[in-house]
Nucleic acid binder design. Structure first.
Lengths: 143, 143
DNA sequence: GTCATTGCAAAACGTTTGCATGAAT
DNA sequence: ATTCATGCAAACGTTTTGCAATGAC
């Protein structure tokens, strides 16, 4: 374990991530931070995100949409990613409480209590599709 | 939806994936298939894997270890990836039955019934670490 | 004959790394 | 003075793409 020195860049990255309530990619975060530090480099953002993940101050989310996402909330919770719009949503602990009991009975000690990723389609996308179907059936005003 | 034409390469990729009981990456699959078709290109492997995922004949697993993995078993089941050794394990449906009820109650229609990815550490790695700890405490024969 | 598929190589993408400079301790 | 962090650019590994040639229908 090496000693970390203070860096205003790292502090800014962490602060920026904490203040956002979405789950930005490294690149999105880079764009945000550039407003305050126009000279910061993408490499620095990646390096610091890795450090913060190592120290457990932030979480990395690999959702399969190409780029990793980052979460400023270190406290245990779950994530749900929409296959359509690639939005990442938080899923509170309570929802999964019963799962963990089941999982532990099956494979004691194996399943982490807070590392589960759900995939599906979010209500926004489901509603959008539903209204598009209605359009087709009824009077199509888009034609 | 465009019409698919037969291709022996695609057939071979599918057959190869079905016969394996692990969850290979595109590159590992490419290596296997080269034994039968030495001229097949990596691009073709990727193109066909994408087609097979689209038609639902195979599953793509994004586990965050750099490369995507593929699963020849299309039937619903879950996956568990070890953070240490990056092995991907199957988790049978029964284990999760109770979870889905809970999830549906929370977010009806949102959570897919078979798209959950678990992260943790497998028993192999846990045992390995345990025996290493014993080594330290007892007579260290590695020194 | 038409259109999907192939092999190849180049490009794209997200991420990491080497290096000389600069900042923190 | 030492050691870590930075900016930049080059390199990396994975995946996609453009293209001319081949194969399925």
């Amino acid at each position: 374990m090496k000693t970390l020195k203070y860096s205003r860049q790292r502090e800014s990255i962490k602060a920026c991530l904490m203040n956002r309530h979405d789950h930005p990619t490294a690149d999105a975060l880079y764009a945000s931070i550039r407003e305050e530090y126009p000279n910061i480099s993408l490499g620095t953002v990646y390096r610091n995100l890795n450090l913060l993940v190592e120290t457990g101050e932030i979480q990395r989310l690999t959702c399969g949409d190409g780029a990793d996402h980052y979460d400023g909330v270190a406290a245990p919770h779950y994530h749900f990613m929409c296959r359509d719009c690639h939005q990442v949503y938080d899923v509170p602990m309570e929802v999964i409480a019963s799962l963990n009991e089941t999982a532990q009975a099956y494979a004691p000690g194996i399943v982490d209590s807070h590392s589960i990723l759900f995939f599906g389609r979010c209500s926004c996308c489901l509603e959008k599709e539903a209204s598009e179907k209605n359009m087709e059936k009824g009077v199509d005003k888009t034609a």
